[in-house]
Amino acid sequence: MKPICTNRFDRLIETLSRTAAQRVSRRSFLSNCGTWLVAASALPLLPVARQAQASDDPHRSKAAGKYASDFANHAQTSDPTKCNYWRYCSSDGYLCACCGGGPSTCPAGTSPSPTSWVGSCINPDDGKTYLIAYRDCCGQDSCGRCACLGQEGDMPSYRPQVNNDIVWCFGASSMVYHCSSAGLVGLVE
């Protein structure tokens, strides 16, 4: 059939579309289109590279890091004046290491509380879990340096034995909180 259009470009397009209309079945176009639609929507359902999301074992999942504890994945073992020092995974308060004391010693002028709460942290050096006693240093005003908030194993205040929001100066000569220390209790595994 002779093209109706006079313009050269229009004629080319007309010829192409007429040829396509004569040679290509519209039914096949619809079925092909449907196939692609279904294929595109079904593609994400295929079990391809979904191991990371599906895996509940943290050691196998790269996205989740090496340990189940997110804190341990970013922890270090050389600077106790930083919040990510491995023992501070449950420490809430000012680090004694920044206040004139050490990670497990009280600064001069304060006294360690006779009571503490015990949590557990992973040491990234050996990948083992250690029990840590979170012991507040009491008797001086708040230190105010290196405020950190670790929340591993922290429970709401209705379980005060394992809560880090309360002042752990029970039994100390003064209930005035100064800073938080983290002493090693022992190796778990």
Partner: peptide, 30 residues
């Protein structure tokens, strides 16, 4: 830093027994 000392001296800790761990985690603090 305690960990630097531990690494240097090669201090080896024995793992706690299950019962003493239970005591440490649940009772020892107080």
């Amino acid at each position: 830093v305690p960990d630097a000392i531990t690494r240097k001296t090669g201090l080896h800790l024995e793992p706690m027994s299950h019962a003493s761990r239970l005591y440490a985690e649940n009772c020892q603090g107080c």
